[in-house]
């Protein structure tokens, strides 16, 4: 299996040990108090890890207390993601600036258009995977939305993602083998590109949905790598599907 040549990614939060914030003192309701008491009795029996006594790093199974604004309503994003540039701050994703994040509006309005993509691979939030090339070759299983459009597909030579149904998407890969530059554009016209093939290296565009936000990454891979090897490299396994018969005579 080909190995990626990228250096250690210090921008990826989940690759580093997190420093857990100390939760503020919370006024528990009677229901919460009873649950906590049950948790404590279970812990006393030795069946779960003790709650973290301090805010230090390490595993904690204590009750999560989501941050709430003054009115007691939940926010749409419970925890703030690590800092990342927005699409307006980046013209090219590369090794120096490998990722950007769209805001909640940019992630969900209209169509994400990816130009220069010779192939696209997707995984839905229900783990349905598939792949399609610009020439129409297909593998895996398509994901159709309630609007009768494919969640990820092609419109002409451009790969497209239906952002109205972004919550149905988990991740996608866009592979560009030239000659057109691989790049993406959102509803408001903001766009970015990826570097062209450079000797033995090329970049593919990786899209990941984290809660309600889309993150885009330029991922370097060996230039000669096949699509199948890229799927394997990124942990995609095509979902098999049954070819349905239109009329079974019943």
């Amino acid at each position: 299996m080909p190995a990626k040549s990228s250096p250690v990614r210090t921008d990826i939060g989940y690759l580093r040990r997190r420093i857990k914030a100390v939760p503020a003192a919370v006024q528990l309701s009677p229901a919460d108090q009873s649950t906590t008491a049950a948790d404590q009795s279970t812990a006393a029996a030795g069946q779960s890890l003790p709650a973290a006594a301090s805010g230090g790093a390490g595993l904690s199974l204590s009750r999560a207390v989501p941050a709430r604004p003054a009115g007691g309503r939940p926010t749409s994003v419970q925890t703030q993601p690590f800092p990342a540039p927005g699409i307006g701050e980046v013209t090219e994703l590369n090794l120096q600036v490998p990722m950007l994040r769209l805001n909640g509006r940019q992630s969900a309005i209209g169509t994400l258009i990816v130009t220069g993509a010779s192939a696209v691979t997707w995984e839905s939030s229900t783990h349905i995977t598939g792949a399609l090339t610009a020439d129409g070759h297909f593998a895996g299983t398509p994901v159709e939305t309630s609007g009768n459009r494919s969640l990820v597909g092609y419109a002409g030579r451009d790969a497209v993602v239906t952002l109205r149904h972004v919550r149905e998407l988990r991740r996608a890969l866009f592979i560009g083998r030239g000659p057109a530059t691989l790049g993406a554009q959102i509803f408001d016209g903001a766009s970015f590109t990826l570097p062209p093939r450079d000797g033995n290296r090329m970049f593919i565009l990786s899209l990941l949905r984290v809660d309600n936000l889309l993150e885009m990454r330029a991922e370097p891979v060996p230039a000669g790598i096949t699509d199948q090897d890229i799927w394997q490299e990124f942990g995609f396994s095509m979902t098999r599907r049954v070819t349905l018969q239109g009329n079974r005579g019943r």
């Binding site: 709430r68 604004p69 003054a70 009115g71 007691g72 749409s76 909640g104 509006r105 919550r167 309600n212």
Partner: peptide, 8 residues
């Protein structure tokens, strides 16, 4: 995709 206003 932005279920709550900034002020809640």
């Amino acid at each position: 995709n932005q279920l709550v206003s900034a002020d809640g």
